[in-house]
Design a protein around this nucleic acid. Sequence first.
DNA 1: TATTTTCGTGCAAACGATTGCATTGATGCT
DNA 2: AGCATCAATGCAATCGTTTGCACGAAAATA
Lengths: 343, 343
Amino acid sequence: MQVTIKDVAREANVAPSTVSRVIANSSRISQKTKERVRQAMDELGYYPNVHARSLANRTTQAIGLVMPSAATKTLQNPFFSEVIRGISTKAHQNGYSLYMTTGVSEEEVYEGVVSMVQGRRVDGVVVLYSRTDDKVVQFLQDSKFPFVVVGKPFSDSSHVTYVDTDNYLAGREVTKYLHQLGHECIAFVGGAQDLAVTQERVGGYKTALMEEGIPIQESYIVSAPFMTTGGAEAVKRLMSLEHPPTAVVVSDDMMALGVMSTLNEMGIGVPDQMAVVSFNNLFIAEFSSPPLTSVEINIFGLGFEATNCLIEQINEDATPYGKRVIVPHYLVVRQSCGGKSEA
Amino acid sequence: MQVTIKDVAREANVAPSTVSRVIANSSRISQKTKERVRQAMDELGYYPNVHARSLANRTTQAIGLVMPSAATKTLQNPFFSEVIRGISTKAHQNGYSLYMTTGVSEEEVYEGVVSMVQGRRVDGVVVLYSRTDDKVVQFLQDSKFPFVVVGKPFSDSSHVTYVDTDNYLAGREVTKYLHQLGHECIAFVGGAQDLAVTQERVGGYKTALMEEGIPIQESYIVSAPFMTTGGAEAVKRLMSLEHPPTAVVVSDDMMALGVMSTLNEMGIGVPDQMAVVSFNNLFIAEFSSPPLTSVEINIFGLGFEATNCLIEQINEDATPYGKRVIVPHYLVVRQSCGGKSEA
DNA sequence: TATTTTCGTGCAAACGATTGCATTGATGCT
DNA sequence: AGCATCAATGCAATCGTTTGCACGAAAATA
């Protein structure tokens, strides 16, 4: 069926081992032989069998992707497309390809990861989320398998390498930005509470308020599942308060879309009656109306850097100390907060 | 290092072959032995090595994904997240996992596919686009490798199985819809011309005009690369015509966003001064302003069905006749065309 | 010229499973 | 009791590479 290394060897009048060395471009083979073998290779249309190769040298040239358990819903957020784009770019540059399993339940995802690791299907793993008490991260750490997480891991974060945005800082900055625009009643709408992002961003938000001498009101802090629809409920809850806020920090552009759409239905104008600022600066931020003021966090870069770290980790055999990479962010001012004048 | 089948065999006092048969749940092994072996397996924490397995039984339980060459830009369109979501769901249900290579040039993608197929890395392939004269499809067909394309393939489409929307019909329907709303000057803004989608949709558009007795004006048909930014140029060109259109059919929601945003800048109101209808019904359609009237094409379903066909094809050894699956679509009326009254 | 290095290559044993065929002991049949 | 049948398991070859080691010839050294 398949053209094997033996066929090539026969054609070129050498031993299979020689062919193998030619593939690896070993310096121990003479130029002349190399050429002869190479010619035989493309005459026969030879392609190495990946599995035989992986089996023999215990390497796969593939990296595994771990998505949040509800892969189903989650993949809808362009965040993931974008981070995968970053991962895939770097991976491809280094001759790695991508491998992904999905699962509906958290348990399924975990099983997927285990069999991917134990089954030696990949050389390393990048984890695309980070939540409290996550079995996956724990497992990877215990098995001393190369991995990096996008986002800040909880447990023992000093020993795991991760790449992240400084979400705490970003949360603080945007809150201060709103305050500078004159807002005193600033609310926060966040995604799932067990996600690191949410916690960091809300932490920054609180700090900013404190620093500005504004009391923190728990009723101003609402959280909802990470999608557009969640925004609706959040808004309704906020607007039914005795003193509704005049500005809101939303933890994700997608959710901000939901928030704005609901505000619109309720006849509340953005930015006149409510300022909205959010995070991620997805392409939709530019085309919503009004266009969203949002924090550009360079999602592509997160994926790219993560893969970079992972590949480093795969290549060094020493289990590395946890390394952390912070990808810089900046606020992109559009129209959802008014304050166009602000730099 | 790794726990192998031999370790399990030793532990359970049987031969490796018996363990293998237990894994495959062969009926030739007695219940008693099965249990003993299974116990040994999880005592030792055994996981089969995927590559050894693939090598021996010439199967991988993995499906390859082929993205358009400019994977880089393309992945930004939520279309791909969504179709992958469908693919991944079905794949996972049947114990397959996903494998993707990417490449920046068309040539790189092609090489990726070839080595994925010849290297026996996957059992089948789903191609996520279809353009004229595509080497990839040609190659897959020549190698008699199981594959299915999402979208309508050009060459010899009778022999390749594909799943698609009836884009021709959809194009015709939306055009008629606009006509029913009273529009006579209807333009078409499409994506890359060598994509099957574009051609089909514009075909339907033309047919509808003919059927309604409206002459086709070539200047009303513009095409631009498949993203938001392309929309801007298209609009400018259309609005500088002597008789600008009063309605426009846009080939993709993303592009429609660009179109609407440009119209907005130019002070042209939607839907009052320009009706806009588009395709795909991405989540953003719901949250744009005004919310987009768009054709729901069930992208998830496209991916899901495609994978279904692929798996069928993998399991039958007979090379199947090209099978075609058309996933139904329907118009979701929102506000970008006005005509709320229309059913 | 004899002896050590170096260079280029081949041999054969892994890597960790699967699977056709042989083996064995028990059972059924006459 | 003798023989065929059958169920349960083991043996060993195979899948297509890689790689440590051995080997002969050529080059370098003494």
